[in-house]
Nucleic acid binder design. Structure first.
Lengths: 240, 240
DNA sequence: CTTGACATCGCACAGATGTTCGTGTACAAT
DNA sequence: ATTGTACACGAACATCTGTGCGATGTCAAG
């Protein structure tokens, strides 16, 4: 039989994928209902039963949160694009083998982008309405690609404001000793005995460290004095 | 601190790992108790709380089956051999399930904080040495807590540089109409017909919007003209 | 128009499940 | 001896959560 899923069922699948990825445990039918604009638990159950008969999910009867996604089937149905992405693209450390469908992880770390914030436009805000998002930010891709060499630094003080990095921010870096021109790196300067976040430029045998904020002057050092610790991949600021 | 786990707690970890791998959802405390020869649910809870304070597991209060393993921490504690790595986890790191530490990718959204970055201090960078981390950033918690009401905005242009938010950054907000003084919010200003990110202050019937960058002047509006769309929870910048 | 499958809704109910609390034991410190 | 801490037990409790069932609306076929 041909799968004929309703938009609602697609939404349910997407929500489950996102929820499990984020929470590490499956949602309840009420949580699904709330997220997918379904007022009745029985309607959720009805749709879950449909999905189960299509073998897209597996359900344990009478067990709270007793459901899981059947990734091989989801892939066979061509639904990966609808509800998630294979992890293979996000983690290149995996690239040494053929992935079976089961070896996939949803790209659940995505949030709906409900608009752009730039002066002049209002934003429509209804975060619970999954369907209304016209774009999705894939935070998996954004933050966690090639996680192997990632580490974090917590920024102390205002020494990095020139790079628009504030006190308390978390800087996520990928360990590497070399950097391309223009990349922002964490560098240890031997002469100065300090570590800074700066844009890296190699001019012959000299290294120029440029602040993000143009009001701060560039700094020049012999290349031998600058040792790159890692490249800044992401900056995360928590505000609560 | 040194981890000092009882045999019972190791057993619990092992059981959780095995259960999640097989069932695709976490066990209840009663199931854990039955499997680990614990007659009382409160004893299971007691031990789970211990494991949680060691950050070996993550627990959602009052949520059935609301627990998950913290694999990076488990590895850091040298417990992978004790509890075994579930196939479902190995899959994320290695296609064939054979565990090689260097290639393994953990399926948990926390990264080690290997130090602080402030002028004057060197940073020891060995991202593979999880044990040396003096702090862990749980990005799950940092970004996706109460994710139901979260949405994102992509920043366009340099209109927010005064808030240290750059063009292209992703701003993650929690939907809410009210704000406390000092919180950074996305606000729609009726008179100006624009949306901005500013620190919010209510002075009597007036709203003061303060930029993060002190070189930008504050803005004042009647409270009726300012409508808060959401509170900024996180700012994420991608640099690659 | 009638019929029946499909999808939805609201609600009540029973079972599942985390939490709390009083109690007990063992052991080290005082 | 007394106190404090860590660990364990069991029962009671409140809530979470899946299921069942009757009612409603839609829509195409007869």
């Amino acid at each position: 039989m041909t799968l004929n899923l309703s938009e609602r069922q697609i939404n349910i699948l997407r929500y489950i994928a996102k929820f499990v990825d984020g929470q590490k445990y499956p949602p309840t039918i009420r949580e699904i209902g709330a997220a997918c604009d379904i007022s009745s638990t029985s309607v959720v159950k009805y749709n879950l039963s449909k999905l189960e008969s299509d073998e897209l999910i597996v359900r344990a009867a009478e067990v709270s949160r007793g459901l899981s996604l059947n990734w091989p089937k989801l892939e066979a149905a061509g639904l990966l694009g609808e509800i998630g992405q294979p992890v293979g693209q996000a983690i290149n450390g995996l690239a040494n083998g053929v992935h079976r469908a089961a070896e996939r992880v949803v790209n659940f770390f995505s949030v709906p982008v409900l608009g752009h914030i730039a002066a002049g436009e209002p934003i429509q805000v209804d975060p619970t309405d999954y369907a209304s998002a016209d774009e999705w930010i894939d935070l998996n891709e954004a933050i966690f690609r090639d996680r192997e060499k990632l580490f974090a630094l917590r920024v102390q003080g205002d020494s990095m404001v020139d790079a628009s990095v504030l006190d308390g921010d978390i800087v996520i870096l990928r360990q590497q000793e070399r950097a391309e021109n223009g990349e922002m790196v964490a560098a240890w300067i031997t002469g100065q005995e300090e570590t800074t976040l700066k844009h890296f430029y190699l001019d012959g045998k000299n290294v120029r460290l440029r602040a993000a904020n143009p009001t701060y002057p560039d700094m020049f050092f012999p290349a031998s004095q600058v040792s790159v610790k890692g490249k800044v991949v992401s900056v995360i600021r928590q505000l609560e």
